[in-house]
Design a binder for these strands. Structure first.
Lengths: 331, 331
DNA sequence: CTGTTAGCGCTTTCAT
DNA sequence: ATGAAAGCGCTAACAG
């Protein structure tokens, strides 16, 4: 920057003003400075800027697992927004490990991120996060809310979406519907299970805890559970998969060991439209979730200090056939 | 850091030494300093460190699209390695736009990344990259090589994998085999097409350019192309999909408009084992590619300045049935 | 509209 | 084994 200043014959501060689009520079000098910047190939040293300002044009994104398609799509959407704001994105996967999540947040902050977008891992240390936010580092939660900290939050309509999906099965005559959800510790799993109970209650169908399985999605566990359900005294005629991973694993189990079951899943997945029958799903929109989260964050970065917002994104039922019928899946 | 120094009654420099595991500190003072660090919750300000040292404990990862499952898996693997080295990961998608890629690289560098891992976008400005590397910022290319710059590179065995896949079809009696590849400008697409030609030549089957389609993967384009091929004078009896995206799009097209075609794809995809018949694929290992790329990079960061390495990762044929037969796909 | 001065928090260099 | 001083490149605060 000093080189540019010397070249043009002005002070470094003036160059700084031009680089930062400060209005108080005469067009003529600004032009000469821009010219010199071009000629010398000058690029602002972000680290020095960061040190001075205390906050970098970098956003930290903390999610469960980048390789999960839900988070992949979300990451891409956040990235587009971040790029549009001339920022960069630090990405880390918590792998559902609260301690690791704490470490990663600390690492983000020690690098001076200007804001944090995160899917709160269960057991996350919210005090740590509260400290950061106090240091003027805005925080946006997505997919799950924080429990104590009141921050901007983007959630899918987990309960409503599940109600719609389960109702779809009920309307087709099913009264024994199994529910496969993620571990009980996961917010979305609990919400969706609640939606499942609501839908049953609305229809006057008794709730049977035997039909509810809250487990890590896994083909073997799914196969075993389906086998036990099928062999029970009053077996289910339909299944609701509480997430993307369960949808895929149950599909796999149902294809390998066909049992006549109708089937609806929460969250869409690739090839859900291609298997036979197509899998009816309740879709959420991960890209929209990422976009909204980024928008909320940049609003804070731009100085908005209004009350924390809570955005709920609607879901949609896509009927593809798997909820319509009784009979073995052929995959 | 000054706070810690004052608390203990030493100079900031001594604290710095402790934080950096410098040997020349008496165990006693080190212990007292570590104690104070703990008590005060001190964390080193990476930006100041960066400004002074000129290079951050941050790695830049530039890929085509994080939401593509291939890159998602790779990103996750790189992330694990980066975390193990106490670094952080900046991730950006070039979206196959060379100009955007140039911008992103500049942004990485202005943030002082300690190294760069990238899938070179076609038309990338290699001079820019050469400058950065000269500034002691090591570069590793994956998936595609750089053309002019001699850097550490990790590639899949595109040619050999394709030969194995096409040979699989030939061994099952196919002599008219179509090839769907990405745009001609993409290195992997060209390599795989070359493998396709090699496999045909080995078997004494004439090469027919009419059977080769180099296009952006897209369901409609796939359907049209398949329709034209089916209606031609000497239609193919089998298809080789040159990548993950084509595999999925062709599968979709073949399910909606069944034509009797055997089918093998390059790169695995979720549910390839579930559709009927299962899709035979040539797998590459994106996680291994990420791991190897990160290893190469950290070796450079740790000071290795030996000649550039070129690692080729082997592929494997997974037979699932789609290459065995002639007859309509039922999905 | 432009310049001067000072300092962000750390590490390098050179003393002690 | 420890400390003092200087400075990385930029921008905030205050002139002029």
């Amino acid at each position: 920057m000093n080189d540019v200043a010397r070249e043009v014959g002005v002070s470094a501060k003036t160059v700084s003003r031009v680089v930062n689009d400060d209005a108080h520079v005469s067009p003529a000098t600004a032009a000469r400075i821009n010219d010199a910047i071009e000629r010398l190939g000058f690029r602002r040293n972000e680290s020095a800027r960061l040190l001075r300002q205390g906050t970098a044009s970098t956003i930290g994104l903390l999610l469960e697992d980048v390789s999960d398609p839900f988070y992949g799509a979300l990451t891409r959407a956040v990235e587009e927004s971040v790029l549009a704001h001339d920022h960069q994105l630090l990405v880390s996967s918590s792998a559902e490990d609260a301690h690791r999540a704490d470490r990663l947040i600390a690492a983000f902050v020690s690098r001076g991120v200007g804001g944090l977008i995160l899917a709160p891992a269960t057991g996350l240390d919210e005090k740590l996060l509260a400290d950061e936010r106090a240091k003027n580092c805005p925080v946006v939660a997505f997919d799950r809310p924080l429990e104590e900290l009141d921050v901007d939050t983007v959630l899918a309509d987990n309960r409503g979406g599940t109600i719609a999906g389960v109702r779809h099965l009920i309307e087709r005559g099913h009264r024994r519907i199994a529910f496969f959800g993620d571990a009980d510790s996961v917010y979305t799993a609990r919400e969706r299970r609640a939606g499942y109970r609501d839908a049953l209650a609305d229809a006057g169908i008794p709730f049977d805890p035997e039909l509810v399985l809250m487990l890590q999605p896994d083909e073997r566990a799914g196969t075993e559970a389906l086998g036990m359900l099928a062999a029970s005294a009053d077996p289910p005629t339909a299944v609701f998969a509480g997430n993307n991973r369960w949808s895929v694993q149950l599909l796999r189990a149902l294809v390998r060991h066909p049992i006549g079951l109708a089937y609806v899943g929460f969250d869409d997945f690739e090839l859900a439209d291609v298997v036979q029958p197509g899998v009816t799903v309740v879709t959420q929109d991960p890209a929209a979730m990422g976009r909204v989260a980024a928008d909320l964050l940049f609003r804070r970065i731009d100085g908005d200090d209004g009350p924390a917002q809570r955005v709920q994104l609607s879901t949609a039922l896509i009927e593809r056939g798997s909820g319509e019928r009784l009979g073995p899946f052929v995959g």
